[in-house]
Amino acid sequence: MALFELPPELAIDTAVARRIMVGFIRGQLRQAGFERALLGLSGGIDSAVVAFLVAEAIGPERLLCALLPYRTSSEASLEDARSVVDRLGCASRVVDISSIVDGYFEGALGPDGAAASSLRRGNFMARARMAVLYDLSVVWGGLVVGTGNKTEVLIGYTTHFGDDACAFDPVGDLYKSQLRQVAVDLGIPERIITKPPSADLWPGQTDEAEVGFSYAELDRLLYWMVDRRRSAEELAERGFDPRFVERVARMVAGAEFKRQVPPIAKLGPRTSGVDYLYPRRRPAPGS
């Protein structure tokens, strides 16, 4: 029996995809002059896949997995993350972010902190994890690897400068359904592949309940809309509910800012990102 629903048009050659992603990880590190990497391991499928890929690319001894629970995070997530660390034999470190987050909302922010919405708290947790990862990256001497997939990047189901912060992202062009295929190919524990994806910001939260549709239908729509450039009319002919199409199209358009480097006001003769364009890892002149 299949572990998950895979729309046929999203089926990928996992061996080739894996080869490209593993080479990409090596290439990025080499270009930047680093030999080590680290990432935040949540217990979910995305970070598990990236951890396996990094271990394959550079060896588990050069990977640090940071487990960054908040006090309401589920114990099962932590166990799943630990199972990945055990399987890979990589280094790991647990940093409980509760005191950082609570110190802000229950202390630094003053009396109105306690009333903060779960959205604010969720975003703050994601950014606290980012701050911890970047701090640990100095100690570990490695680059932070991103774990955001194409589905969440497109609909903007991320915290800007939080879970989307990274030096590079090997899985950002794989839809969730495709990433699940890669997970099976990598031999990731079945429990991690089959459990409902969750940001785990509060007990019982799941992505699909929060967003309102399944990854299989969302991925299929995004594929035809974005990759295959089908118009709203053509999507309707393909059987997609126009209300669903409109809602997703709005989410994608509204998240454009999260996918781009913030613009700089053009004043001088050469402006970073406008007409000063270099590779991210530029060799020093004369090298």
């Binding site: 048009e9 089926a11 990928i12 050659d13 061996a15 080739v16 995809a17 490209i20």
Partner: peptide, 13 residues
């Protein structure tokens, strides 16, 4: 540059 890893492609690319 390699692109399109759809499974229907010969040699996966």
């Amino acid at each position: 540059p390699g692109r399109d890893v759809a499974a229907v492609n010969e040699v996966g690319l």
